[in-house]
Nucleic acid binder design. Structure first.
Lengths: 214, 214
DNA sequence: ATGGTGAGTAAGTAGTTACTCACCAAAAAT
DNA sequence: ATTTTTGGTGAGTAACTACTTACTCACCAT
């Protein structure tokens, strides 16, 4: 009987996936499930099914459900993209471009809410790696922007306001936009691009009409 | 019969709590647990224990765990406070006061993060009442502020910017502040009051130095 | 062929979950 | 004084949870 089963198995791609690939597919399946339902809201059974393997194999790769969660956060925490463009705008003192760059990196058509949901869940559920995740997803750009604002104040180009608070405020606007439209799924009344333009203009110029223009 | 009941209630408190009080204590216990651990992260056993009753009694008052959650959201959704003060500032066209009022209602010492956590959890976990909860906790002030900004633009006092987007931006700043310090528990480098002052100033005046002052 | 090793699973386990039922006793109503 | 209503519980239960055990099979190098 074993022989019969084996003989039916012709060459095609191997039925056995490599450990590395399997691990990756488990992480991928778990990522979207954790992002959708949170840690406690996701069962190991669901993850295994989504990855197309048995639950037992999941535990061969990750000793506990928690370890799998940790592995996700640790993996997703690192990315370096965008920094070059930002640093260029920084050197050129191109305020509008820098702010637009930072905002539209997060506010854009294709941006999927998975990471944001993961970040919020990890913070709310109090995961140990929540801090680290936050640092690397967010803090980098925050510090960069605060530093830039500080320099521009020294230049005399910006009003003398607290740079850290100003950076926080700007990211607040951006994050809030994503919160409303990606998480709460509220309808937008302006396109992403138009929103970014308005936000940047508002942030740089303020609300109050300063000098009556022609 | 009402008279008889009231007059008999003299010596030491009754051994049996009234249905209403018990319901309230269950809701109170559940609120903090749901806020801390989310819906799936909280068990009916925990809630019953926290309220000091048996699990069976919980199900006498609320047919399902879900119904209890719904009851919480429905109860906490309504409050009207603050509106009077806001409307007064609105009439007086006192920009700074209005913005400060709105911001410091949420950014203040005693503000407990329970409602914010509940709101975020309900949105992330996709609860049916999430929308309603959001509307009443948040939308009211949003619309109010957007309306005010629109009027001030008509007055010629504010720059002609999209009022809805501007209101969204301001609440973004405020919510973000709470997110960082109440949920992520990052240390603050300024007091709540000082932060509000800076935020309002930034929002009204913008970042760029418009007219070189003396 | 043979044996070592990693990929894979069916069928568990002990504990937990939301929820129920039979029953009791304190008040109220009669 | 007795019935009715209401607040309250101990002891369940079926389904589900994270995690294990004992085992089979595919692949490859001798």
């Amino acid at each position: 009987m074993n022989r019969a089963r084996t003989s039916l198995r012709q060459r095609h791609q191997p039925l056995r996936t490599s450990g590395h690939e399997r691990q990756a597919s488990l992480i991928s399946a778990a990522t979207s499930l954790f992002a959708a339902n949170g840690f406690t809201g996701t069962t190991t059974k669901q993850i295994a099914k989504a990855a197309g393997v048995s639950e037992a194999l999941l535990f061969k790769h990750f000793p506990t459900k928690h370890a799998l969660y940790t592995a996700i956060l640790a993996e997703k925490a690192q990315y370096s993209e965008l920094r070059d463009a930002v640093e260029e705008a920084t050197k050129k003192r191109d305020d509008e471009r820098l702010f637009t760059l930072l905002a539209s990196y997060r506010i854009r058509k294709g941006a999927d809410p998975t990471m944001l949901r993961l970040l919020l869940f990890s913070a709310l559920e109090g995961h140990e790696l929540s801090d680290m995740f936050f640092q690397q997803q967010y803090r980098v750009f925050h510090d960069l922007l605060a530093g830039y604002i500080r320099r521009r104040i020294e230049d005399g180009a910006f009003r003398p306001i607290d740079p850290v608070l100003a950076a926080k405020a700007f990211f607040g606007v951006v994050l809030h936009h994503r919160l409303l439209h990606d998480i709460f799924e509220l309808p937008m009344h302006l396109s992403h691009e138009a929103s970014v333009v308005e936000y940047v203009s508002l942030f740089l110029g303020g609300l109050v009409r300063q000098s009556p223009d022609s």
